[in-house]
Design a protein around this nucleic acid. Structure first.
Lengths: 296, 296
DNA sequence: GGCTGAAATGTAGCGTAGTTACAGACTTTT
DNA sequence: AAAAGTCTGTAACTACGCTACATTTCAGCC
């Protein structure tokens, strides 16, 4: 029964701290890496250790250990220990979720799911609540919304646009760079430009933000890091994901972005008066009727 | 002391602390039982609580909480929390966080993230590995692939199409019903029609599968349940997600679908010879160079 | 039925673990 | 080579968990 529950529980919300540490190791500070190595070497030992003991093992100072814990997304040492305990309980000795050439499709599936969930959890813990709040305020007050994005971010833009029933105002999605310029140039006060770019460095998309804002539109951006793009935006939603440089790494950023879109659209819808919500309900029913077909 | 003998008597091996507590509950002291009840009622809450907070919840004094922890065989409160964390990680009945009208945006964010991750975990455990294997085989052997989808599934189709560098063959995405019919009619043996429909009941999309297959194309479908669509497909990838009927429920199905696409594209890419992979690498680098821009 | 002693619970205070503020050392940039 | 910024350690502080002790409660007994 023990093994059964392990199988079932595996993944559990994806908060696998060991995986997070392993992924982040390269980009950690030198001293933090010492701590990471000590943890990865024998995670179980840390469970019964204090900050001081951990510091001694890693041959660093206590504050460094604390900084390490926050760097990997925990709220202090006790929280870190709890996350660690949970990860270890999942029976995760095998969680090198780095993909290997020799992996069978089943393994690939497990690893990608696990990686995606871990990455989502990471994004969740790093999300700026205040910015989200502000974004919801702006979107609720918007006369109309246009989503801008290229490539993978274009997918996100299109998805957001499809959620217009929840946003409750006309929504557009511009995925072509010429169209984007044209639309951005025509925007005016009261309208919201929602700019999506994972890198935040694509020149043309930054230009869109600049133009839209210059015309008086409110600009919100959804990006992966604190990038140049944020300079031209009223609110910046930075969604950090665990992207390692491995060739096989799937782009979790777009998935995290979709979740953020879910949150925004849902939050906006919840602020609308109830008659509004009744209409959404009706719409959903009609859509479902349309889909349903007679048995063949 | 009797507490010592209890520890020894119960044996420290007690893995699942929650189970231990439940078992011992009858023979606990009256006040300890209050603590036990609080813990059993919502174990997760205790993970972030201090001794004082736990004591307040159980309406007992702090030392009572401490005595409770030793009574159930732990060495102090931190140890108790760690054991609890491990136990929870094992057999977690995911707490379906239902959205309430009164929820603040922060809460909405937490709940949606949590819901999405739980739903992904659900999808993962329900995924048919054999079907995935077969799909990878077919996609690897394909001359070309066309992805079909409407609405939210259209997003998934587009996303899949964008992953054509990984699939390594020409990929198309048809999101318009007329175009879909035209393209499906032109398909022939060796080509793969990848049909995406969450409901699996949309009449026109089923028609696409039928036509494509009639022309000798191999048909793979990605759907949410064992629906009529599967009758016309060579392989059916059924991705079950937790979709409750709540109006506010975000559509986790499309996110799970994207993850499945990730898995398929990655698996296919991994089967390609290494010179292929080198080219993907190169492509990624070029794309990254294109994105990068000079600081403003 | 009150008395006595053991068990159970609460009170108060102590020591240490975890945290934070700050300052020095080291990198990197100009 | 100077200056800015980042990283790391020192030192002081908060509060958390724990222990010793006082008080209460209850059971058995005179």
């Amino acid at each position: 029964m023990d093994t059964d529950s392990r199988i079932e529980g595996r993944g559990l919300g994806g908060r696998n701290i060991v995986e997070v540490i392993r992924t982040m190791r390269p980009e950690l500070r030198k001293s933090d890496r010492k701590v990471a190595d000590v943890v990865l070497e024998d995670p179980r030992r840390i469970l019964n250790a204090t900050v001081g003991e951990t510091a001694a093992l890693a041959q660093v100072s206590q504050p460094t250990v604390l900084r390490f814990t926050t760097a990997v997304g925990c709220n202090g040492f006790p929280d870190f220990k709890i996350r660690l305990a949970q990860s270890l309980a999942l029976g995760t000795p095998a969680t090198h979720s780095v993909l290997l050439d020799t992996d069978q499709p089943e393994t690939v599936a497990e690893k990608i799911f696990d990686y995606t969930m871990t990455s989502l959890d990471w994004a969740r813990s790093r999300l700026d609540k205040q910015a989200m709040n502000k974004a919801v305020d702006i979107l609720t007050a918007a006369k109309s919304i246009v989503f801008f994005g290229f490539g993978a971010s274009g997918i996100v833009a299109r998805d957001a646009q499809q959620k217009f029933p929840l946003f409750g105002v006309p929504c557009g999605a511009e995925l072509d760079s010429h169209q984007q310029v044209m639309v951005a140039s025509m925007m005016k006060e009261g309208e919201v430009a929602f700019v999506i770019s994972n890198t935040g460095t694509t020149r043309s998309i930054i230009e869109i933000a600049r133009i839209a804002r210059g015309n008086g539109a409110t600009v919100i951006c959804l990006t992966g890091s604190d990038s140049p793009l944020t300079n031209y935006c009223d609110v910046s939603l930075i969604v950090e994901t665990l992207e390692n440089t491995n060739m096989y790494t799937p782009t979790t950023s777009r998935i995290a972005a979709l979740v953020v879109i879910d949150i925004l659209s849902t939050s906006v819808a919840m602020r609308r008066p109830s008659e509004y919500q009744a209409r959404i309900h009706q719409m959903k029913r009609q859509l479902s009727d349309m889909r349903r077909m007679q048995p063949l």
